[in-house]
């Protein structure tokens, strides 16, 4: 029961881990991704924050990213960002 989450920038692979939920700041609004999410693709607002919940109820870990897009497929969630900090 975990979502495979990857955060990649051109400089490096920032994250590659199994988490409970990720909230993605899409251009048309934030959306949360859990395991088994239907495939989708979305661009990301510039200068936004990704929230990562490692376990249900855990405090969110926030990573600010700029530009990019997110892809959900049967392997998990991949965020390609221009930079992440």
């Amino acid at each position: 029961m975990a979502l495979h989450f990857e955060l990649v920038t051109p400089e490096r692979l920032v994250r590659s881990e199994d988490v409970h939920m990720v909230v993605v700041p899409g251009t048309e609004g934030d959306f949360g991704v859990l395991e088994g999410h239907s495939p989708m693709m979305s661009t990301i607002r510039s200068d936004a924050t990704v929230e990562i919940y490692a376990t249900p109820g855990a405090a969110a870990e926030k990573i600010s990213i700029t530009g990019g897009f997110a892809e959900v497929n049967d392997k998990g969630l991949t965020i390609l960002a221009e930079s992440a900090a």
Partner: peptide
Amino acid sequence: VTAGASVDYEPDEEEILADLLPRNVSVQLL
């Protein structure tokens, strides 16, 4: 990667593509 399944695009394919293609150029250069 997503073959077989129907994929939701947000906003839509064209806009995502318009965003992606210039980025692809930068990435190739990098």
